[in-house]
Design a protein around this nucleic acid. Structure first.
Lengths: 137, 137
DNA sequence: CCAAGACATTGATGCTCGTCTATCTCTCTG
DNA sequence: CAGAGAGATAGACGAGCATCAATGTCTTGG
């Protein structure tokens, strides 16, 4: 597998740190472009196949709100019991959406006793935001 | 309608210019948060309903590559005839995907004679990238 | 050990989506 | 004006998705 376009792991350093988007190092000849934004150089088919599932996971109003609730929660994590109450949807439906976000690599799951806590992978969100949002050169 | 979270029009100035993501003005009490990123404050249900269609439009490998091809094309625009050749898909399928991107507000269409040119709405991409990618405070 | 509660899983249902073939509309050329 | 070519539209079809009710799996308290 080639170098990932999206950094999912908070432990891994970002090759394009947030805020550095305007001073991206110029592309080295022969080297794969890491974090190549959408507007600079064409995404390969395989890169597109890699990124699309992340966007698809986010491309639902309920999941967007879930991500926002979790990411903005004090402490960086939220209990499922709190999330369930924030929506007018059944508990299995919320559980399903959380699983979609977790499988996409946008949430981390942590079970502590009876309760389950989800945490946002801010690195993945940052990478995705840079990929989409960086302006053309 | 409340103030839009996503700036679609290149003529309109961005309330959160690219690169300004780390120095966002502190939220004024009582004022709606413009361009409130995903990780800061919870998206309302209506805001999520507004943003999700944009992400859904992008959340397809073919459309991601189309956006990338158009956005990175010299001159900022690309002819449909060139785009058709870049994919192993039928012409109506490409036309359909371009329409989805245009209806979402991510592409502008310009017919000149026999040919049709599409141009990326970089402002919309920038807003979307900031919304997703800005880190929590 | 048992009952209760938190969350996940299963299976069903109706809707949306990506793709295709066929056809249509528009514009230029001869 | 007729034909050709560029691109859009229409309709069909199979796959995928969001939701729910019902049920299953853990974990804790008594």
């Amino acid at each position: 597998m080639s170098k990932s376009l999206i950094v999912l792991d908070d432990q891994t350093s970002l090759c394009c740190a947030p805020g550095a988007q305007l001073q991206l190092p110029s592309q080295q000849a022969g080297q794969p472009v890491c974090c190549a934004p959408l507007s600079r150089g064409q995404l390969t088919a395989s890169q597109a196949e890699e990124v699309a599932p992340l966007l698809k996971a986010l491309a639902d109003p309920v999941r967007l709100r879930l991500m926002s609730l979790v990411a903005s929660h004090p402490g960086g994590e939220a209990c499922v019991c709190d999330l369930n109450e924030a929506f007018d949807l059944s508990q299995p439906t919320i559980s399903h959406h959380l699983k979609v976000l977790k499988d996409a690599g946008l949430l981390d799951r942590d079970k502590r006793g009876v309760w389950v806590y989800y945490r946002a992978r801010t690195q993945a969100l940052a990478s995705l935001g840079l990929l989409i949002g960086s302006p053309p050169l």
